[in-house]
Every structure is written in structure tokens, then in C-alpha cells.
């Protein structure tokens, strides 16, 4: 290989790149929280809600699970202004990622509702628990434990997905990597460093999620 690695040329940009990583973290966190809320609402409606409400939710889930995220964001970014809704690139990306994650998280959380152990709920009932006590002490802890690993995975996936924001000019980790590349042409160096930043972001998240899962839910699987 005739290419000589020259990390010296990109080291001045490490701080600038860290700022991008910080933005990527924010994107992932916001999209995850919004998507989780959307998914919880949709999944509980699918489980407990009226029949008529299930149709639009199914349509939403099918649409967002079967089209690429990139196309969805393009639609929000370029089509919505036609209807008078003007989104900034950051907003369009957050909204698109949230709606997309919401569809996935609907499916994941639906599985959680389906896994409620009716026998335990019955035992709680015969012990005199009220309905609220039964949800608080028996149903919720169970659902949270079942859902914790797939929700963690979804968060890690979202962290990587944030790189799509670069296409819309959001200067997150990948966006800033492009910028540095355009100025230095040290592609291999800067993209290696960007990859390393992503690894750090996901490893920190994995370790934190592992600690939470182990402490609160007795989940013993290895984080990596």
C-alpha cells in the first residue's frame, strides 16, 4: 500500500469532531425517547385499545418498517414545506428518526405486553392486590425486564443511524468528518478516527445499559 498514514494533519480537528459526537449522542437520545414514547402509546393501544384505533397504528408501523429511513426523512424535509410545514434539517432528521424508531419500538413493546404472565396477575388478584398495585408491582417490573435488552439494542442501532443526518447538512459526527476530509483529504485517517468515536459512543452506552440491566432487572448477559 503506497498510502502513508499521517494522523498529524487531522489531530487539530479532534475537538471539533468530539462536538460532532456530542450532537450524534443528542440525536440518538432524543429520537430514542420520542420513539419509545410513540411506541409505548401505539403498543398499549394495540393491546388494550379499541379495534378502530388499531388500523391507523398498523398502517403507520407497516409503512415505516418497510421504507428506508433516508426516504422518510427526505419526504419530511422536502414534501412537508408544500403543506406549509417547514422543518430545519436537524428537526427533520429528529422527526424522521423518531417516527422510524417509533415503528420498531411499537413492535418490540407489543411483544412485552404479550408476555405478561396472566397467572402472576391472577395470583396478585387472589392476594387482594388492587388493579393498580398489580400493574405497579407485578406487570410493569416484568415488562421492563423483558423489554430492557431489545430496547438497549435499539438505542445502540439509533446511535449509528444518526450518521444519516450528515446527508441533510447536520454537522454531527459523520457530517464533521466529511468537512475535515474536504479540508485535509486525509480520508483514511479521519474516517478511522470517526469510527473510533462511534465505538466509544456505543461502548459507553453498552456499559451503562449493562449496569442498569444488571442492577435493576437481574439481567446477566454480557454487555459485549
Amino acid at each position: 500500500m503506497s498510502y502513508t498514514l499521517q494522523f498529524g494533519q487531522v489531530t487539530p480537528y479532534l475537538g471539533y469532531l468530539a462536538g460532532g459526537a456530542w450532537l450524534a449522542l443528542q440525536l440518538a437520545a432524543i429520537a430514542f425517547v420520542l420513539g419509545w414514547a410513540i411506541g409505548l402509546g401505539c403498543a398499549s393501544t394495540l393491546h388494550y385499545g379499541p379495534r378502530w384505533a388499531r388500523w391507523p397504528i398498523r398502517a403507520y408501523v407497516v409503512f415505516f418498517l418497510n421504507t428506508p429511513l433516508l426516504v422518510q426523512i427526505f419526504f419530511l424535509y422536502f414534501a412537508l414545506p408544500d403543506w406549509g410545514i417547514l422543518l430545519g434539517s436537524f428537526q427533520a432528521v429528529v422527526l424522521g428518526m423518531s417516527l422510524n424508531a417509533g415503528a420498531y419500538l411499537t413492535e418490540i413493546q407489543r411483544a412485552g405486553f404479550n408476555s405478561i404472565r396472566q397467572a402472576e396477575v391472577e395470583a396478585a388478584e387472589t392476594l387482594g392486590f388492587t388493579r393498580v398495585q398489580s400493574i405497579r408491582y407485578v406487570v410493569l417490573p416484568h415488562i421492563l425486564k423483558v423489554l430492557f435488552p431489545p430496547l438497549s439494542n435499539q438505542y445502540i442501532i439509533l446511535t449509528m443511524t444518526t450518521s444519516i443526518a450528515a446527508i441533510f447538512g447536520v454537522e454531527e459526527l459523520t457530517g464533521r468528518t466529511y468537512n475535515i476530509n474536504a479540508q485535509t483529504f486525509r480520508s483514511l485517517e479521519i474516517f478511522s478516527i470517526a469510527a473510533l468515536y462511534y465505538v466509544v459512543l456505543t461502548l459507553i452506552a453498552s456499559a451503562a445499559l449493562y449496569a442498569v440491566g444488571r442492577y435493576f432487572f437481574r439481567i446477566k448477559r454480557s454487555p459485549f
Binding site: E120, A123, Y137
Partner: peptide, 11 residues
Amino acid sequence: IVFQQYNLFQN
């Protein structure tokens, strides 16, 4: 009542 499948609270 005590059930066939115990039905203990797993958590």
C-alpha cells in the same frame, strides 16, 4: 389459594 404452577412473582 396455591396454584399448580406456583405463580410466584418472578421479580
